[in-house]
Design a binder for these strands. Sequence first.
DNA 1: TTGTATAAAATTGTTAATGGTATAAAAGAT
DNA 2: ATCTTTTATACCATTAACAATTTTATACAA
Lengths: 226, 226
Amino acid sequence: MNRENHSLGQKVFQRIRGDILKGNYKRGEELKEKAICEEMGVSRTPVREALRQLELEGLVNIISNKGAYVVGFTPKDIKDIYEIRTVLESLCARWAAIRAEEEQIEVLEEIIYLTDFHVRKGNMDQVMKLGGKFHEILYEAGGSRILEQALQNYHHYLERVRTINLLSYQRAVESNEEHRRILEAIKEQDAKKAEDAITLHLANSVRDIDSYEWENITGGEKHEQN
Amino acid sequence: MNRENHSLGQKVFQRIRGDILKGNYKRGEELKEKAICEEMGVSRTPVREALRQLELEGLVNIISNKGAYVVGFTPKDIKDIYEIRTVLESLCARWAAIRAEEEQIEVLEEIIYLTDFHVRKGNMDQVMKLGGKFHEILYEAGGSRILEQALQNYHHYLERVRTINLLSYQRAVESNEEHRRILEAIKEQDAKKAEDAITLHLANSVRDIDSYEWENITGGEKHEQN
DNA sequence: TTGTATAAAATTGTTAATGGTATAAAAGAT
DNA sequence: ATCTTTTATACCATTAACAATTTTATACAA
């Protein structure tokens, strides 16, 4: 999105955000400005800016003159996000089938090829990274900055879930095969096929995740979030 | 979302946001902190917080140590948003058909009834307001806070477009009739019918808007962003 | 005139200090 | 002992001052 934003506030934002997404904070937990300041070694202003951004993203809930509280995700939220992602990525795939540029297709092809390699070598973190990259390029290929932003957002939300998900070797192979079919459809400019392929891909991802203990992902509740 | 946030920063945020959405700023225009401070009679901190939030929303683009630039919407962006809204509201309608609570259905019914009344009286701003309310309750009826937030977001984006749109009396009557059919489907708990109804509703809305001069809505470009 | 180097002004990023609000503790009344 | 009132404390909101960076203006040389 923004090429480079080296401001302190932005770093604090990323860090708190990551902590929430990784589940380091419990839901409903209060985020005290001073505590964060001391922990990160910065002043209150960048922290406040970060909290305000996080509020907009729905990750924290700010009550005036009271404090900022972690909202976090319930298991249902995550399931919802997967469904939302499904309809959104379907749309994206349809658009990509029509509007994808040659260069983007080549990059996608390269990613799939590379993934095959890393899967064989058992280099799972690389596989993970490439998987993220695949979807990123796909979002770009949709040719809509609005849709791209939305999808990137949701994708970030699910980062932690995906980490757990792709631990399975079998799933990694399968997943890349599904990616291959998506790309195939795009190359054939077959919107319907692309849509179906990505729907199946996400359905399979959810199916896999469903078997995990949700509590491990979202973190236990602390107290009611209002 | 947050019941009450009377902080200055929040007001500044809403105001700048509104100005961008209303087209008071041109795309690419630089937002100077000092100028906004003086205009709104506040200090720089709330302004900075607001700008940071707007960046996250994709309405402005902040470059470190340089400035904040208005991103705004192109005609294509708006068309994209309508398509995104369509798939998202379809999903929401499906969910609402299953999970809508009795109370929400009653409110929707009341809104439609009231709209009929105000349409007859030619009270168009009330009609507009009720139209917004209808969708708001519908989002709530979907029973997913994540989806609700996303839809509210996009709905806000299109506020200005809708203002122009519903100026037509004929369209107002038609629109309420479409709302009625959506509600009908939800009451029958017919997910497919609800989905189709809302898809048609939005398609009609877009069709109407398509006939307007897009430039009037988005404002002319000033210089390249970034 | 054009290009570069330097200095001044403007603007942003960050910190520190001040003011206001809500929560918690303590004192007093019933 | 319990409830209300008062006081004190802690925290957030806002402002003002400071530091760093960028842009603009100026001077000089080719």
